[in-house]
Computed example of a mutant assay.
Amino acid sequence: MKTRQKTRAHLAWAAARLMAEQGIDNPQLALNKAVARFGPIDKHRLPEPEEIDAALIEYNRLFRPATQNAELARQRVLALEAMEFLAEFDPRLTGAALEGTAGRHSVITLQVFADAPEEVMRKLLDAHLPFRETSCRCRLRGENTAFPALSFYVDETPMELCIFPATPAGRAAAAGNREGAASIRELRTLLGKPAGTGNGERG
Rank of each mutant, 00 (worst) to 15 (best):
I41L: 12
C162L: 11
P91I: 13
N199L: 14
L124E: 00
R132E: 10
T67F: 03
I57A: 02
A149M: 06
K2I: 07
E133W: 06
L78I: 15
T167E: 04
L124C: 05
K6M: 05
C162W: 10
L11N: 03
L187W: 02
Q28D: 11
D53S: 02
R188L: 06
L56Q: 00
L125K: 06
A146Y: 08
E143I: 04
R141K: 04
N69L: 12
A195Y: 07
G180L: 15
V154L: 01
E84M: 13
V112Y: 12
M159P: 12
A55Y: 00
F164I: 09
S183L: 12
F63S: 05
P194I: 15
M159F: 09
P27H: 12
T67C: 06
A34P: 03
P165M: 03
R178C: 02
V77D: 14
F164C: 08
Q111Y: 15
E143V: 12
A82S: 13
E88L: 12
A20W: 08
A97E: 01
E201M: 07
G170S: 06
F152V: 04
E118R: 03
T101V: 10
L110C: 07
A82Y: 03
A149Y: 15
L110F: 01
P65M: 14
E51W: 12
M159I: 13
L129C: 07
D90C: 04
S135D: 07
Q68P: 09
P47M: 04
Q68L: 10
V120D: 14
N199Q: 15
R137I: 10
F164W: 05
A30G: 03
V35N: 01
E160F: 00
A14R: 07
R171S: 14
L56D: 00
N144Q: 10
F113L: 07
W13H: 02
V77A: 11
G95P: 14
A55C: 01
E48V: 07
M19N: 07
L72D: 06
G198M: 11
T101A: 11
E88G: 06
E50S: 10
T7A: 03
K193A: 00
A55I: 09
H128N: 08
V154A: 01
R104L: 04
A169P: 15
R92H: 10
E84V: 09
G23I: 00
E186I: 00
P49N: 13
C138T: 14
D115G: 14
F147G: 04
R4D: 11
A79K: 00
A102C: 01
I163L: 04
A173S: 05
P194E: 05
Q28H: 11
L129G: 01
L129Y: 01
A169F: 01
G196K: 03
Q111E: 14
G95M: 08
L124S: 03
M121Y: 08
A174H: 03
L86P: 08
N32G: 09
S135W: 06
T145C: 03
G100L: 03
A127P: 15
A102Q: 02
P49L: 09
L125G: 05
P117F: 02
A169Y: 08
L62D: 15
L18W: 01
